[in-house]
């Protein structure tokens, strides 16, 4: 039940992009075509889940026991950068077809603040789900939370790419073309997602 609430909360209620503004740059950058948006979503789900798992373990078994929590930011960003490179290399060897689909998005992900944001959130913040007690997440919950957050990000990205493809065909006033109208559309999408708030 707890896991179910985490998933609903992370995907709909506190959508990482539409409610917390994490990962906006790549969001605006790759959302003009549905196919690239889908590729990016896959890569993000993969990296966020994996990065959170690794940084959670590093924090718990390395940084905290040795009193090095002041190196959190530095350690996490290096881990993420290394991880992204490794994923790229491994993917190239194991599954060239998947690499073809995700490859070009992987280097971009290091500077997607959703990755570092989620990794830092799960080790520093208390969470409440469905009226339950406020608590720090354990390993299982962290990974599920990270996965669901990434799915939420991917979903917002794909939804938005769909909207933008239609936007292209419309007669938009000249000054609004491109990013401004995209931002306003995004605002309306965020408004729709506000309907989910209070759900869990």
């Amino acid at each position: 039940m707890e896991y179910f609430l985490i998933i609903i909360s992370a995907i709909f209620v506190n959508n990482v992009m539409l409610a917390q503004f994490l990962g906006t740059c790549p969001f605006l950058g790759v959302s003009n075509k549905l196919s690239t948006a889908t590729g990016m979503s896959g890569a993000v789900v993969f990296v966020i889940t994996f990065a959170t798992l690794v940084t959670y373990l590093i924090n718990k078994y390395l940084l905290v026991p040795f009193g090095l929590t002041f190196l959190q930011t530095i350690a996490f960003i290096l881990v993420i950068a290394t991880l992204v490179q490794m994923v790229e290399i491994v993917l190239k060897k194991i599954s060239p077809s998947l690499y073809q689909a995700l490859g070009i998005f992987l280097p971009l992900i290091t500077t997607n603040c959703a990755v570092l944001g989620v990794a830092l959130s799960v080790v520093t913040k208390e969470f409440t789900f469905g009226g339950g007690a406020a608590h720090m997440l354990n390993l299982g919950e962290s990974v599920v939370y990270a996965f669901a957050t990434a799915v939420g990000y991917g979903m917002a990205l794909i939804l938005f790419a769909g909207l933008r493809e239609h936007l292209e065909l419309n007669d938009v006033p000249k000054q609004f073309r491109g990013i401004p109208i995209a931002l306003i559309t995004c605002g309306i999408l965020a408004m729709a997602f506000m309907g989910f708030s209070g759900l869990v």
Binding site: E126, A133, G198
Partner: peptide, 11 residues
């Protein structure tokens, strides 16, 4: 005292 508010923990 901490409980679950609308957007997260409320202390």
């Amino acid at each position: 005292s901490t409980t679950a508010g609308f957007g997260g923990p409320l202390t």
